[in-house]
Design a protein around this nucleic acid. Structure first.
Length: 470
RNA sequence: GGCGACGUAGCAAAGUGGUAAUGCAACGGUCUGCAAAACCGUCACUCGUGGGUUCGAUUCCCACCGUCGCCUCCA
């Protein structure tokens, strides 16, 4: 079995074959940093992080580029609202997002190019399109001539005629056709601008991705990714630009993740994340409350192409899932290294690895892969109860950590730094309680336990002693 | 209006032309002084509704209902 990927371009699951054997060139549209990143942005980053990690697990070298569109209408509008410098604002937000991605255990991309660092390449790209007739300058703007591209619409399944008939907005008189889109926008007073052959201005949306992709990955790439809201017009226009310039097919596989949607736990209604509703969940909000693995589990729990349901209840459920995964990492209590229980464990782990790979090969079915992980959890816990230990037990746990790692789960037993200061005091109370239990003073012992529970500390007794959870 | 996607147990969510993974929750049991955790067991005769194709459909086709995304702001 080999890897198969759903390709938006062909609308089916295609076998994955790279341009260069063993190497994957993957470009993923990043964010426009104009406000705090929310969980939807994090979802997309995690989806492609998992894809990248799995491709690496399967032996590919992955060149992974993620851009920041750090100058555009929204950035400028937001900066104006805040009375701040646009580039300073977007630069800061981009840096913050990078820090959050690191916290979410997203592997750093090979590069994170920004529009502001790619202006010469963008200008050259546009000049090339003008030279070969795919673009034209008009009063300081430059537009892409959609009519020059016979294949326009192939990604989103639209015909030019359809699009024109659906036009409901005012047509810019400088455009030859309403469907034409801006490659370069003439500077307006107060806006960031760079010199160009058409006068000072800034890149339009879309062109930066084409230019960055060529700059960092070459004219043809294997995977181009992003949210499915980008299929049209963004990715359609990227194809038009890139193929207009090079005359070669741009990306082999177009991979799009579904949108995260908030679902009201009471009404089951889908809600739009919006500031006015006060329901925006930023990445920072989430990380204040939960381990980064918990968010990843939410994302992994469903097929990346489908809409992802999110709410506080789901976050709490996944926190419990996370606890259960961690249970597999508790140390062995016995040291039996042979016998039927060991056989059963070893076979279960092998089976799980096969299920894991089969699921992930099938268009990155991470939910199936996580189910395989839970198979290992049960097998490991059962084996521990049966007294299995030593090398076979360690091997099972090592495989478990390895597969979890392919999905980007850290499974960190340290309670994300929280409670480090209180640990010695909790240990002291546990010790006192142990003495009370020894003296059969159960009422007092239980009081200690329940008072600690009120404070958010859960005690779990075992023959090996008492463990606490925050 | 056009294009596209989705509708599976209380919740979340995989999956297959031959009668439904997994996790959370719930319930029963083992363990425990009691709990918790772990383990064992139970939990969808059914996969939005109605037709059709088929020996057989949740899986293919059509219609309808519902939800969502895109149609130049959007991960």
């Amino acid at each position: 079995m080999s890897i198969h990927i759903y390709n938006t371009l062909t609308r089916k699951v295609d076998p994955f074959v790279t341009i260069e054997p063993g190497v994957v060139r993957m470009y993923v549209c990043g964010v426009t940093p104009y406000d705090d990143a929310h969980v939807g942005h994090a979802m997309s980053a995690i989806v492609f992080d998992v894809i990248r990690r799995y491709l690496e697990y399967r032996g590919y070298q992955v060149r992974h580029i993620v851009n920041f569109t750090d100058v555009d209408d929204k950035v400028i509008a937001r900066a104006e609202q805040l009375g701040r410098d646009a580039l300073q604002l977007s630069g800061q937000l981009a840096d913050e997002f990078l820090a959050q991605l690191a916290a979410l255990n997203v592997q750093p991309a090979t590069a994170y190019p920004r529009v502001t660092q790619t202006i010469p390449e963008i200008v050259a790209f546009i000049a090339g399109l003008i030279a070969n007739g795919h673009a034209y300058a008009a009063e300081g703007d430059v537009y892409f001539r959609v009519a020059s591209d016979a294949n326009y619409g192939k990604l989103s399944g639209r015909s030019l005629g359809e699009m024109l008939s659906g036009t409901r907005f005012e047509v810019d008189p400088r455009k030859e056709s309403p469907a034409d889109f801006a490659l370069w926008k003439a500077a307006r007073p107060g806006e960031p601008a760079w010199p160009s052959p058409w006068g000072p201005g800034r890149p339009g949306w879309h062109i930066e991705c084409s230019a960055m992709s060529v700059k960092h990955l070459g004219e043809q790439i294997d995977i181009h990714g992003g949210g499915n809201d980008l299929i049209f017009p963004h990715h359609e226009n990227e194809i038009a630009q890139s193929e207009g310039l090079t005359g070669k097919p741009f990306a082999r596989y177009w991979v799009h993740n579904g949108m995260l949607q908030l679902v009201n736990p009471q009404t089951r209604e889908v809600e739009k994340m919006s500031k006015s509703l006060g329901n925006v969940v930023t990445v920072a909000n989430f990380l204040e409350q939960y381990d980064p693995d918990v968010f990843r589990l939410i994302v992994l729990g469903s097929y990346y192409r489908n809409p992802l349901t999110y709410n506080a209840e789901i976050a709490a459920d996944n926190a419990r899932k996370h606890e259960r995964l961690l249970s597999a990492l508790r140390p062995a209590v016995g040291d039996s290294a042979s016998g039927p229980a060991v056989e059963t464990l070893t076979q279960a782990v092998e089976h799980a690895r096969a299920s894991f790979t089969q699921a992930m090969d099938n268009d990155f079915n991470s939910a199936g892969a996580v189910a395989a992980l839970f198979e290992v959890v049960r097998a490991t816990n059962t084996a521990r109860d049966a007294g299995v230990g030593g090398q076979p037990f360690a091997a099972a746990q090592a495989t478990f950590k390895e597969l979890a790692g392919v999905l980007g789960l850290r499974l960190n037993l340290d309670r994300h730094g929280k409670g480090q200061d209180s640990a010695p005091f909790i240990e002291l109370l546990i010790e006192m309680r142990a003495e009370l239990r020894k003296a059969k003073q159960f009422a007092l012992a239980d009081l200690v336990r329940s008072r600690l529970a009120d404070l958010g500390v859960t005690l779990e007794d075992s023959p090996q002693g008492t463990r606490f959870k925050l």
